[in-house]
Write a protein that binds this DNA or RNA. Structure first.
Lengths: 165, 165, 165, 165
DNA sequence: TATGAATGAGTATTCATTCAT
DNA sequence: GATGAATGAATACTCATTCAT
């Protein structure tokens, strides 16, 4: 699964032959099908893992009791992605257009939490604010993963300013 | 090229056999290779067209002389995508992770224009504001294309409010 | 490999589709590529075998201790090719112009031996004599394989006479 | 036809696409089929030319009235092949195994002449001697064309000596 | 006479998947 | 539980040939 994650993430799902996965993982090709039935089954298993790990990164925000802090954490999230985590963020975003594997519901808890936070802070449209912020997190993550974003701290401060914290 | 655009956009580049393209287009499979050398060559030709059509949609913003109006047009852009245009927006976004076909430079003219607009309006960080707005346009377009965004007008107004125009 | 040898030898390498080989061999076409990577890989494997078998036919000459006898054996060689061996002699000669598969060095041991034999018999130019004899062997083999040579025994005696044995 | 000769000779008949011929010749691909019906038709036309040119090279031998001189000319023949002629000699030899294009009868006039020469010189088996000499010419030509023969003059003298002229 | 756009059968090769061991 | 040999359908691509112009 680790090898699959890496290869799917770097070279794409369709472009990764099962033989390559088994080779790099040092197991027989047949084993993949014994465990996951399908190449799709393997992807599914990998994705469950990925969603899980990403959800974990949301936990500090969701469990934060101070609304202002929660928002600050949310904005900071994409800027704190570690190199080691790139691989599963990238896979997640690559599969965004593969409806079978993209599950927008995974973001609901985060949206809920941010809704609450914006509400606490007296915003007019807390739900829309939350939705917008989550989307913002996604674009910035994408830009960072693709290496397009220079001056990360400057940009981070710019965003924090935007929310007047 | 029309058939290819449609299929690449709906089913993905790797998942679309050249035979399917030629069948649906009502031409021989060989013709694809005579004209485009490669399946990749076909994609390239299709993408040039796509970029062109998308650039055209930016023109009203870029040529707008009133900064406030330019920003308003930019925000409105994703909400005014017509069903008929979905197919090439979707392809563009699907290929975002295929570095060979993703050309972030295409957005430069738009970013430049919005920088100018924010500068005219006396914003502190016009460049960062412009960058942020373009990213915002991209997420919202994505959400709309994926059919995730309900209450489009409400959301649009929310954004327009954000920029106090 | 047997089927490939036969088909390459009879119909030529380029003119033999891998599908025909697999069909006649009663295996799947994919198996060829699993084992030999390439159609070229198959040819290479076949040729290694062919060279080996031909080298074996040289052994009696190379191991012969009597110089006169060695030469006699060499002259007799093309006349003693069995029908069953035609297939690999023919392939070898067909590939003579395909530099990647033609290895003239394979004849060196035979040339060395004949050099020695002619030297023992006091010839002026043993090396050139040896080279000439090996070439003679090649033409005559070719003529025989192509069925152009009638009166084989008469011709054989004529050659033996030439070398006064 | 010149381009075809060159390509067939260098890269082989099967390995040369008609498109490559027409490209290098600077004509349309269709023209080949208008003139020669077939790719095979083109080869046939080319080969007629080749046989013709090679026959011309035999003329000095065939018209020679002095038997000793005729034989000397025959031996010298392969050593006097000019670089510019390589291309059609090579094609001729490459097609040796393509029965449809190999015509051993072309050598008959030469064999006849050499038979006559050896007969004049009082040899026991003039016909066999002639046949052997023609074969010798063929091998040596082959070796020269393939660039395997160093010390050409030494080898030529060795052969001339063999016939004691 | 010559072109070149179009064809379609054919070709090597890939790859997910099966299954006996 | 794991292997790896074998499969066969699918795939991108080639190429001789046709034909309207």
């Amino acid at each position: 699964m680790d090898t699959a994650l890496e290869l799917f993430s770097n070279e794409g799902f369709e472009s990764t032959p099962t033989s390559k996965i088994s080779n790099e993982a040092g197991v027989s090709e047949g084993l993949i099908f014994r465990h996951f039935t399908n190449k799709n089954g393997l992807l599914q298993a990998v994705m469950l893992d990925v969603e899980d790990r990403i959800n974990n990164l949301f936990q500090p925000i969701i469990q934060c009791l101070d609304p202002q802090m929660a928002i600050k954490l949310a904005i900071s999230l994409p800027f704190s992605i570690k190199k080691a985590e790139y691989v599963f963020w990238r896979l997640k975003y690559k599969l965004k257009w593969e409806s079978a594997y993209d599950n927008p519901d995974n973001l609901q808890p985060l949206i809920k939490k941010l809704s609450w936070a914006f509400y606490q802070l007296g915003q007019n449209e807390p739900k829309l604010e939350a939705q917008f912020m989550v989307q913002t997190i996604e674009v910035i993550s994408t830009e960072i993963l693709k290496g397009n974003l220079k001056q990360k701290t400057k940009y981070k401060n710019f965003l924090l300013d935007k929310y007047e914290f």
